[in-house]
Design a protein around this nucleic acid. Structure first.
Lengths: 214, 214
DNA sequence: CCGGGCATAGCGATCGATAGGTTGGATACG
DNA sequence: CGTATCCAACCTATCGATCGCTATGCCCGG
């Protein structure tokens, strides 16, 4: 996990800020090729032979490391969902008690992930092709993120920091806005991920009726 | 096309209000079964035999009415996109010159379609599996809707009715919020389509910094 | 010499698509 | 009125290709 030297003091500071740093996720060659293929042609549109061809191996090599084709998608979704769930929670608690800061942090964390891990984030649309039990686990993660955002929206509304009529609907609108980012965002675009995140934080604050601190 | 009797006067009035009325779209048995199958298991996850089985015919019957499997998806997307494009444009012009009313109308039209034609609207995510030339036509439609919304946002910002920093980004956020509705909306839910539309119109007006008329 | 990490070869099933025959109803003709 | 013709709308049967997956064997580093 972490280095064994000088941890006591720097640990909190590091962990607290960690949710902003998204280095390119390191994947095994097999998972990297699977991600590319699934992103381009979808789960059912991708054959295991195509994945093996991209990796430069034969088909049985895939089955040595993963149970079956669905196992490849599960492994990718596992990494993806645990990453976004951890980051959202860290961003939330990092915002202290101020709903404005908490929502700003969570939206920033989500948008940063949607832009810097766009291909991985777009994969979540393929989760509905999983077997029922695996799909269940994935939907639990989605509900977790929704609950984080909804709690902030509700608490902010009760404290008067926000002006929201329907917190559940506003939460879905916030997440829907963010989840659609991978559909149009390209890394070659003019806006960098932090710039996109800043814009969406401001939009999100408007959606909940909180004036940005200008 | 239309009946030749009594058209001159009633036409305008009918057309102007038509974009709010969404009767269940009548599809051929083949397209109806294709829509169900594509919605449940995706384009690549659906076999032509499965579609034929749902219709109650054999496979060649499908190929008699449509060129190939992709032709089934094209026919559905054609109906879907032409419908939403027409409704959005009608809702826009029906709002007169007031940006608030125009945006309210367009968002209402889009949300009404997303809820009442949820399965058809969700199909648009499968458009990326089309061949390049067909995908091109579809993306043109999407750009058309985006341009309608963006124009309203820009004009509203220039006239002072809206308070928007980045109209392009706000437009994408508005559409992304709406396009994600089919992912969670079920017809069995507690909210009716007009109720959902009302809520999203209010949220949209907040996003562009226009205070709702209370 | 042994087992992790593959490749060779091929299994049965299913894929999208098609050639060619059948049918039933509308229309034209005597 | 009877019947000949025709075409839309299918069905039967089957094509070659590809699918997910695996039994078996080799090879090389420890």
């Amino acid at each position: 996990m972490g280095s064994s030297t000088d941890d006591t003091v720097a640990a909190e500071e590091t962990v607290a800020a960690d949710w902003r740093t998204l280095e390119p996720m390191e994947l095994t060659p097999i998972l990297s090729a699977s991600l590319d293929a699934f992103y381009e042609t979808g789960f059912h549109g991708t054959s295991v032979r195509e994945i093996a061809r991209r990796v430069g191996v034969t088909v049985p090599a895939l089955y040595y490391h993963h149970e079956n084709k669905e196992g490849l998608l599960i492994a990718l979704l596992e990494l993806s969902t645990s990453d976004v769930l951890w980051r959202s929670h860290a961003a939330d608690t990092d915002g202290g008690a101020d709903p404005v800061q908490r929502l700003s942090n969570v939206i920033e964390a989500i948008v940063l992930r949607m832009t810097m891990r766009a291909r991985l984030a777009a994969l979540e649309g393929e989760a509905r092709y999983l077997s029922p039990e695996n799909r269940q686990r994935y939907r639990a993660v989605r509900k977790g993120i929704e609950q984080i955002v909804r709690q902030i929206v509700e608490e902010g509304t009760e404290s008067g920091a926000f002006d929201v009529e329907d917190s559940a609907e506003t939460t879905r609108a916030l997440l829907g806005m963010c989840q659609s980012i991978p559909r149009w965002y390209h890394a070659e675009g003019t806006l960098s991920p932090p710039e996109v995140a800043k814009k969406y934080v401001k939009i999100a604050l408007k959606m909940v009726g909180a004036s940005p601190r200008t």
